[in-house]
Amino acid sequence: MRVETGVRRSRYRYALERQGVLATVLISPAVLFIGALVGVPLVLAVYLSFTDATAGSLSGNWVGLANFRSALHDQVFRDALWHTFLFTAISQAVVIVVAGLLAHALVRSFRGRWLIRFVILLPWAAPIALTAIGFLWFYDPQASIFTWFLEHLHITSPQNRPNWLGTPHAAMSSIITVQAWRTIPFATVIFLAGVSSIPQEVDDAAAMDGATGLRKFWHVSLPLQLPIALVAVLFGIVFTATDMVVPYILTNGGPFNSTQVLTTWAFQTGINAGNIGEGAAIALFMLPFLAAVVVGMLVFARRAEVT
């Protein structure tokens, strides 16, 4: 009896020496942390989207899909959905092109390369709220530095000043530009890692086979860096589609909702106007779409993987 107890005790005593137990113990705090900070709010948001909860009465009554139906009937919501797509697609297309070019330029060895890399990375390091406010000044209707340059280059005149944030197309272009500007450094770093990871032997072999320029890029470089580049694209899409800082600070969705995206509209409906249930429903519209994007990209990345 005593022997059995001793064996059991010693089994427990050395339980942590077993890989499975130790791994579980070590990973549990992270799982609990993510569950509490991501899982609980997500579940709460899903619950709220099916209720008529207001800012003044958080519980609300169960209304089924009414909030989703109401959102779909709302022209502003439909516009916001389209703007979210435009905002994400165009800014990320710009990011892919610019980051690709920058990565290929920066992988080469030249004097001052570290300085250029540092400068390109800076937008990523700066707090976005601060930089968005900086751009708000750059786009200021009275004192825009962009306008000042254009006037000095005689492209525009004081009588015909560009209105960066005041007309629908200009405002959308402005927020897309800032979003692309802030995402480019991250994508560049990832692309750079992809380009750097291509072994020299592959390059040499391609050169010996006569592959140069665009052919080499298309058939050798691109397939090899695609999996890692897709990670940057994936992150870029998710970050952009779920971001509200840039449109919120620069235009607040204006003029007349022409730059309203789902995040700003969810915020305005849920927090400013006090309709928490409706706001949650608007915010959750993105969830299946983004989940599909994530799954699709991961599947594509797996297929494109070069072993």
Binding site: D140, P141, Q142, A143, N163, W164, G166, T167, T251
Partner: peptide, 21 residues
């Protein structure tokens, strides 16, 4: 008026006045 009024924030009309415009 000027088309700038469509892109204003709460401080813009003050600044418009302070700038002498």
């Amino acid at each position: 008026e000027d088309s700038a009024i469509f892109g204003w924030n709460p401080a813009s009309n003050n600044n418009y006045l302070y700038a002498g415009t």
